[in-house]
């Protein structure tokens, strides 16, 4: 029986701040890696691909694969290359929209 989320902080630190992902309120540790913090919060997938709509989440965690793309302030950005800041409003990238990166 599974009792835990797939990802767990082993040494929780830091102040939590409120952000939203797809309109849902989340409390994430300030300054932490955004992709990691979203994984711990149980967010998955991060996006659906523009080609087939397949779900995707973080894969490389080092800014190379672009599978953790999310949309912030209208721009597609790599969640693994960002840090959590207060009030971030995050959505999944628009599929079939104008943004393609």
């Amino acid at each position: 029986m599974k009792t835990a989320l797939p990802f767990r902080e082993i040494d929780p630190v830091g102040n939590k701040v409120s952000i939203t992902f797809g309109g849902i309120d989340l409390m994430l540790p300030l300054g932490e890696n955004l992709a990691g913090a979203l994984l711990v919060a149980g967010v998955m997938p991060f996006r659906n691909t523009p080609v087939s709509g397949a779900p995707r989440g973080p894969f490389c965690m080092m800014g190379a694969c672009y599978d953790c793309l999310v949309q912030i302030d209208g721009m597609n950005v790599q969640a693994c290359m960002l840090q959590v800041s207060e009030g971030m409003e995050i959505t999944m990238p628009v599929v079939g929209g104008t943004a393609d990166a």
């Binding site: 797939p6 990691g36 894969f59 490389c60």
Partner: peptide, 26 residues
């Protein structure tokens, strides 16, 4: 290998080093 939840082993190490995040049931 494109399914969410599949990552490189290096990614798991980065999560641990950078954020102290461990993968359970991996």
């Amino acid at each position: 290998w494109t399914l969410p939840g599949v990552m490189t082993a290096g990614a798991a190490q980065i999560l641990l080093k950078q954020s102290g995040i461990a993968c359970q049931n991996a």
